Simulated assay, not measured.
Amino acid sequence: MKKTLVFLGFAVVLIGSITLGWHLTHRPSSTAKQDYAQVYNAHQSKIATITNHQKISYLSNLLGDLRSARRVHPKKPQNSQLLRHFKIVQINPSAKIDAFI
């Protein structure tokens, strides 16, 4: 009887620790719960994080309109200077947009 109780106690502790470990490693971070956009300056320092849905939609639409309005360069031309880097992350459906202005 004593061996059974010890075994059950060990099993409960083992299952509890495995469950707790799984929950701690698989929970989403605070930014991963919603869409967001990060704005970087020319030195790649983050200057803003946008989480407002309307502002993210506006920025996404603006970048989409620019792509259809003119040719987008896959590489940076030699005489250009980087002003801003916009990184837009959409959670559902999963999508990422990197724009270098």
Rank of each mutant, 00 (worst) to 15 (best):
S57K: 14
S60K: 11
K76F: 02
K76L: 07
S30I: 04
L82A: 09
I97T: 13
T51L: 12
G64Y: 14
V12S: 04
L83H: 06
Y40S: 03
F7H: 06
H53Q: 13
Q54N: 15
A37N: 13
K2Q: 08
L66C: 03
P77G: 09
N79P: 11
I88S: 09
L8H: 11
I97S: 08
L14H: 12
K75A: 03
N79G: 05
S30Q: 02
I18N: 13
Q90C: 06
N92K: 15
S17T: 15
D65P: 10
I18E: 10
F86G: 04
R67I: 03
H73E: 15
K3W: 09
Y40K: 10
Q38F: 05
P77M: 05
A99P: 00
T31E: 15
H73M: 05
V72G: 11
G21E: 01
T49S: 14
A95W: 10
S94K: 12
K75Q: 05
H43Q: 15
H26T: 14
A37D: 02
T49I: 10
G16L: 08
V13G: 03
R27M: 03
T25C: 04
I97N: 07
F10V: 08
V39L: 13
Q90E: 15
F86H: 08
W22I: 05
P77W: 04
T4P: 01
S80L: 02
T25G: 02
A11I: 08
K75Y: 06
I47A: 09
S30P: 01
T51R: 12
Y36T: 07
I56Y: 04
Q81A: 09
L83K: 15
R84Q: 08
H43A: 01
K33A: 06
G16M: 01
T31I: 11
S29P: 08
S68Y: 10
L62Y: 15
V6A: 04
A42Y: 11
Q44P: 05
P28E: 07
N79H: 10
Q38H: 00
